[in-house]
C-alpha cells in the first residue's frame, strides 16, 4: 500500500527535478550581464592595448598644435598642451578602471571581513558599526577630498581614500545579510552538530553572502569611477601630468567654446563606462535575486512580461 503511495510523490518530484541551468548559462541569458561585461571588456581592451600598439603617448607635448580639431595625426584632436586627446582619454581610462577596480576589490574584502566579524561578535559589532556610522555620516565626496588632502596627492592615496569611503557601505550590507543567514535553520543544524563559528562562516555565511558582495562591489566600482573623476576635476585626485578623465575635463572646461572635443569625448566615455557598470550591476542583481526577476515577469499586464522575457533572449543571443 505504501509503495503505491510513493508513486504520487515521485511524480510530483519529477516536476521539480528539471535540472537547473548552470550559472554560466544563466549569466549569458541575462542581457545586462552580457552587455555590461562585453562593453567594459572593450573599453579595457582599448585602454590597455591600443596606446602601445598605435604608439600613442599621452605625455608628448607639442605647444605648436594646441587645441586642434581632429586630423589624421590626432584622431580626436589635441588638448591645451598639444597632447593627443585620444591618448589622454585612453590613459585616463586606464587610471579610472584601475582605481575603480582596486577600490571595489579592496573595499569588498575589508567590508566582508568587517561585516562578518560584526555579525559574529556583539562587542566588536558595536565598535565597528558605530565607526562605520561615523564615516557614513560624512558625504562621500567631502570625506574623499579630506582624506586625499590629508594623505597627499597620488593615485595610491586616492585609492586608499575611496576605499575608506566605500568600505562602511559594504560592511553594513554584509553584516545584515550575515545576521540573516546566521538565523537560518541550516546554520542551527550545523551548530547543533557541534560546528565551530569558523566552519559556519566559511561553509554557510560567506557562500550565501557572496552574491550581495559581488553586486554591491560592481556599484562601488561605478561610483568610485565617478568620484575619482570628480576629485581629479577638483584637483584633489590624480595629480598632473598623469591623465585622468577628471583632469581632462578640468582642462577642457576653460576652453569649452573653442575646443569642445575635450569635454564632449571625455564626458561621453565617462557616461558610457558608468552606464555599462550599472547595467552589469543590475544584471548581476537580477541573476542573484530570482524573486525580483519572477515578479517582473509575472506581474505583467496583458502579457508584456512574457514578451519581455522573449525579448531578453533575443538580446542575449
Amino acid at each position: 500500500m505504501l509503495d503505491q503511495l510513493s508513486t504520487p510523490s515521485t511524480s510530483i518530484v519529477q516536476v521539480q527535478n528539471e535540472k537547473r541551468p548552470s550559472l554560466f548559462s544563466r549569466m549569458i541569458r541575462t542581457p545586462g550581464i552580457v552587455v555590461g561585461a562585453i562593453g567594459l571588456f572593450l573599453i579595457a581592451l582599448l585602454a590597455f592595448a591600443v596606446p602601445p600598439l598605435a604608439h600613442l603617448d599621452p605625455y608628448a607635448v607639442d605647444p605648436m598644435s594646441r587645441l586642434q580639431g581632429s586630423s589624421a595625426g590626432h584622431i580626436l584632436g589635441t588638448d591645451t598642451f598639444g597632447r593627443d586627446l585620444l591618448a589622454r582619454i585612453l590613459s585616463g581610462a586606464q587610471t579610472s578602471l584601475v582605481v575603480g577596480f582596486l577600490v571595489a576589490l579592496v573595499s569588498g574584502v575589508f567590508g566582508t571581513v568587517i561585516g562578518v566579524v560584526a555579525a559574529f561578535n556583539s562587542v566588536l559589532d558595536q565598535i565597528l558599526m558605530r565607526f562605520c556610522d561615523g564615516l557614513m555620516a560624512i558625504p562621500a565626496i567631502l570625506l574623499a577630498v579630506a582624506l586625499a588632502a590629508a594623505l597627499g596627492p597620488s593615485t595610491t592615496n586616492l585609492i586608499i581614500a575611496l576605499t575608506v569611503v566605500y568600505t562602511p557601505y559594504l560592511a553594513r550590507l554584509v553584516r545584515s545579510r550575515a545576521i540573516a543567514v546566521k538565523s537560518e535553520a541550516f546554520v542551527e543544524a550545523s551548530l547543533s552538530g557541534g560546528a565551530r563559528p569558523w566552519h559556519v562562516i566559511l561553509r554557510h555565511v560567506l557562500p550565501n553572502t557572496m552574491s550581495v558582495i559581488v553586486v554591491q562591489s560592481t556599484f562601488t566600482f561605478a561610483e568610485s569611477v565617478i568620484v575619482e573623476a570628480a576629485l581629479s576635476f577638483l584637483g584633489a585626485g590624480v595629480p598632473a601630468p598623469t591623465a585622468s578623465w577628471g583632469n581632462i575635463l578640468y582642462d577642457g572646461k576653460s576652453v569649452v567654446a573653442s575646443a569642445p572635443q575635450m569635454v564632449v569625448f571625455t564626458s561621453l566615455i565617462l557616461v558610457i563606462t558608468i552606464l555599462l557598470l550599472n547595467v552589469l550591476g543590475d544584471g548581476l542583481r537580477d541573476l542573484v535575486d530570482r524573486r525580483a526577476q519572477r515578479h517582473i515577469a509575472h506581474f505583467s499586464i496583458f502579457g508584456i512580461g512574457r514578451k519581455r522575457r522573449t525579448a531578453k533572449k533575443g538580446g542575449a543571443a
Binding site: 543544524a189 557541534g194 565551530r196 566552519h199 550565501n208
Partner: peptide
C-alpha cells in the same frame, strides 16, 4: 529539524549536506 525546506543550505548538494557533520 521541522522544516525540511529551510534546514539545508541551498548552495550545497545533498551529498555535502549529509556529510557536513563528518566535516565538522
Amino acid at each position: 529539524f521541522q522544516d525540511p525546506a529551510s534546514s539545508f543550505n541551498s548552495l550545497m548538494t545533498v551529498g555535502e549536506c549529509i556529510e557536513e557533520p563528518m566535516r565538522i
